[in-house]
Amino acid sequence: MPVGAGDTLLNADALSDLALALVCGAVAVAHWRARPALAQASALFFVAASFGVLRFSGIAFALGPHRFFSLLAACAAFPLLAVAVRWPDDDIAKRANAAARFVLLFGAIGLAFHMTGFALWRDILPVVSVLVIAFAAIRTKNAHGIFGALLFIASLVVAALGQASAFSFGAFNATQAMHYLMAAGFALLAWPPGIKHAH
């Protein structure tokens, strides 16, 4: 039976988001200087997941920010992650300033699409981004990268199934499974030496 989520402090949903937040926070700190695009993408996920921890712990004010930053993560952080992995020598991947601008532009476009009713955009971008990551990992025959990409794909599949029905993945519900799979994906993707040089 899945571990149920409730309004109690640090329930199973909150714990899963905490795991994602911790992994993303660690990746952001570890790569802040050397791989700014990867770090900024992770930082965005860290912020979204941190609000998620509060939200799932029953703190009402965190609901809006959690949804907002999750949307930003879907529309801007995933594509940035893809650029960081697939084109590590690009200005966007190498320069913190350029990565931030990328987030700004893709975040704005994503929000605009979402607000004008084209909600599918937030589903399309992560899928395309993860496929790009997988392609880059396969090309470079990087085991960590390939497993990381597969875990990301699994997390998106779980998220989609979770939206459609009351899906459970062993002991976890869809939300928890998605968070754990993403956390594992991030950890593998950013694991040294990672797949910094895709070419």
């Binding site: 609901l63 809006g64 929000l111 605009a112 004008t116």
Partner: peptide
């Protein structure tokens, strides 16, 4: 396209 108002309505913390 009053984006601010839309974001406020959908995502405000308080």
């Amino acid at each position: 396209l009053g984006t601010y108002a839309l974001v406020y309505t959908n995502f405000h913390a308080t």
